[in-house]
Design a protein around this nucleic acid. Sequence first.
DNA 1: GTCTATACACTGATAGAC
DNA 2: GTCTATCAGTGTATAGAC
Lengths: 205, 205
Amino acid sequence: MIDRNTEQIILDAARQIFIIKGMDGARMQEIADLAGINKALLHYYFRTKEKLFNTIFNQSFGDFFSRITILMNSDNDLLLKISKFIEAYMDIMLKNPFLPRFIITEINRNPQVVVDKFNSIGAEIIHKNIKLLERQIKDEVQKGTIKYIDSKQLISSIIGLCLFPFLAEPLLKMLLFEGDQAKYDRYLKDRKKVVEQIILDALKP
Amino acid sequence: MIDRNTEQIILDAARQIFIIKGMDGARMQEIADLAGINKALLHYYFRTKEKLFNTIFNQSFGDFFSRITILMNSDNDLLLKISKFIEAYMDIMLKNPFLPRFIITEINRNPQVVVDKFNSIGAEIIHKNIKLLERQIKDEVQKGTIKYIDSKQLISSIIGLCLFPFLAEPLLKMLLFEGDQAKYDRYLKDRKKVVEQIILDALKP
DNA sequence: GTCTATACACTGATAGAC
DNA sequence: GTCTATCAGTGTATAGAC
């Protein structure tokens, strides 16, 4: 009925196109060309462009969040947990540098759909983990182990520091590195330690 | 020849649509409807969709950078300059919350065009200001007034901390605030001081 | 300057042969 | 499962009347 190999080839091609051009900008013809097949076969496997897109988006989005959840699940000491989170998070992004922009772009196009997908993928477990992390932060603040900072501000700062270089890559590369890719890669590589340092300084009592 | 009033109405409508839906997702019909005119008139004023889009994008992009340039031009002491920058930058974004996502989305679609536009808008003056700021950072590091940090890492961290809440708004609102807009507005309002605190802590020798 | 009507191109989707 | 050919819908753009 379905050739898993062909299906995978289509998904790989679709992912590349959708991630760069987004749902609206992507063309079925482009995807077919990249996959080395014709349009009709795309529809044979996925019926509509929207279904194909949703498959890609759900994969990426689900992957994105499940990895984060795993990261948060460790029951380490807070500072160690944060350090490990930053390191692992940056590693994931280095392997999927277009993912953040893809998700943000799609959010821009249709925020509601993203919220719905998030809920269908497993909002509860993620919420639970975030609440847990927030509680941990508040406890440490209470104990005086770390300086006062609002837990939501801290979490968004960590993620923002990690993601921004990927979200704004072309701009930063142009503004700071005169378009030099090698220098930008070096910057990305160094980023882990910098983010860790900034966050730890911010928490030092 | 051209009714400046009608032109402005069209631009306002086009901006709203393009900023949310992007170049590919926007429809001329939608823009015409929002402007209260018909499609033909859009073409009378701007000939093509692409020209209309470029007008909007260049305005937004140019505005975005010229404001930043002005901010950087003050010859204050570094720490004061950074504090003032964060404050003014956040104020600009609070007034144009969709701007960062609009620019990132367009970058994703066509990075080269963005680079070209950047160069045509006035890359030299911006580069000059960035180099100046980098020099200032390096000098202060040298003098020991601030702790060592790579100047490019510092600059991107400041901007990232400011912009991320706007870039990822729907996600953050959902993940951290259960979709509560009022809470999110409060978070944004507090953000200035948090970013300032984080950066100043990172620079404390 | 502004409208209605329409031309023209493109793209998603399907029919049907192999 | 895979292809070629084709349809139907949509969207940009223009022609021409007022």
